[in-house]
Simulated scan of single mutants.
Amino acid sequence: MRRPKSQAGVYSLSKAKVQSTVMGLIAFIVMTFLIIAMLTTAENHSRFASSALNDWTAQMQSDWFVHLLGAENRYYLDAMHDPSPPSLTTAAFEIATNMNLEDPRTFLGREIPGFSGFDDTLVIAGQGTDFTNMSIESGPPAEEHLDELPETDEEASDAVEDDPPEIDDEEPIIHLLHSHSRESFLPEIEGGDPNHPETNIVQVGQYFADQLREHGLPVEVSEHDIQAKLNERDWDYSQSYDMSREILVEDMEENDELAFFFDLHRDSVAREHTTATINDDVYARTFFVIGEDHPDYEQNLAMAEDLHNRLEEQWPGLSRGVITRGGAGVNGVYNQDLSPNAMLIEFGGVDNTFEEVYRSADAMAEVLQEYIHEEMEEEE
């Protein structure tokens, strides 16, 4: 009688094992399909990749990584003011929530509309610059000005500065462009919309180019009306950098001597933050903006930091500083992936005048020509 019971027990055990195996196989198949679905339907910036890992670790305080290196090499810890390891609780909280207890912006950025505009990283803070007065990218022109086209008669041409001085036949090495070509200055125009199809940042680019030519540097200025080109394609204002990229790539293909690229803009913050008096002269302050959403942005950042430091040496307070900008809601590249010598420069704000901006352009041309000539000498 024991033998049948033993067979029944073996049969029962085998049946349970088979059921467990089948359920495990089904669970494995379901999980596989779920993972495949997540990987194939997620947006590019959400997929697991080296860039995603970089974004994830960027939320953690850098002290953690220094301490990890210090576990193997004590010299890393010697450079720290506080060699004690960070709190494990704090680290776990940052990983789980992407919130930094020492940065209140991480608590509010996802809850308050528009607050993400303060997510820029302030690499170098100029005099008086902090998170409350960071550079603000200008909005699109008012509805009634979107389709407005520049005049072409003689009266309109008078608004532009004198023709640039003649230079030799040497190919330009500097390219100036204006992705927001209609950004203007309220004291120079009528009305409350700081955008204008004729009187705008392009005139600053023309003046800046003249000063660089005076220092023997061949320059070309892109004077395209980006807004008009956006209208032609029925593109949104947020695609301004896509439009200027097409122009820039075409110009680079036509002239392989181009080596330095500057996208000139006008800031949107108030006059009190964009104006400085230096040696009894009033200047429109500058701000360097570097896009961090491309792998080689640190090369662009190094150049911006160098130019900021040079300005500070000769005109203390002229530069508002250097910031990096990236992530959701912004362009984050600004065509700077095309060259390590590309950057975006804000010249003044909505309440500055051309006279104040031109003084800043004089100073910027002085430090830039020093930088470029030094770079050219090193290459020789």
Rank of each mutant, 00 (worst) to 15 (best):
Val10Asp: 14
Leu13Asn: 14
Ser14Gly: 14
Ala27Leu: 15
Ala27Gly: 13
Phe28His: 12
Thr40Val: 02
Glu43His: 08
Leu53Met: 00
Leu53Lys: 00
Thr57Phe: 06
Ser62Val: 15
Ala71Asn: 10
Ala71Leu: 12
Glu72Gly: 15
Tyr75Glu: 13
Leu77Asp: 07
Asp78His: 13
Phe93Cys: 11
Gly109Leu: 11
Gly114Thr: 10
Phe115Met: 07
Phe115His: 05
Asp120Trp: 05
Ile124Val: 12
Ile124Lys: 10
Ala125Ile: 11
Ala125Leu: 09
Asn133Ile: 00
Asn133Asp: 04
Glu151Phe: 15
Thr152Ala: 07
Glu154Arg: 08
Glu154Cys: 02
Glu155Ser: 14
Glu161Ser: 15
Pro164Leu: 14
Pro164Thr: 12
Asp169Val: 01
Pro172Gln: 13
Ile173Lys: 12
Leu176Thr: 02
Phe185Asp: 07
Phe185Leu: 15
Leu186Met: 07
Pro187Arg: 01
Gly192Asp: 14
Pro194Met: 11
Thr199Pro: 10
Gln206Met: 11
Asp210Met: 09
Glu214Thr: 07
Pro218Ile: 03
Glu220Gln: 09
Ser222Val: 01
Ser222Cys: 03
Asp225Leu: 04
Ala228Gly: 14
Lys229His: 08
Trp235Ala: 15
Trp235Ile: 06
Ile247Asp: 07
Arg266Val: 05
Arg266Cys: 05
Arg271Met: 09
Thr274His: 05
Ile278Glu: 12
Thr286Gly: 01
Phe288Asn: 00
Val289Leu: 06
Val289Arg: 02
Val289Gln: 03
Gly291Gln: 07
Glu298Asn: 04
Ala302His: 04
Met303Glu: 09
Ala304Ile: 00
Glu305Ser: 06
Asp306Ala: 08
Gln314Met: 10
Pro316Glu: 09
Ser319Glu: 02
Gly327Lys: 12
Ala328Trp: 04
Leu338Tyr: 00
Asn341Asp: 01
Leu344Asn: 00
Gly348Leu: 06
Gly349Arg: 00
Asn352Ala: 02
Asn352Tyr: 00
Ala361Thr: 07
Ala365Ile: 02
Glu366Ala: 15
His373Trp: 06
Met376Ala: 14
Met376Trp: 14
Met376Val: 13
Glu380Val: 02
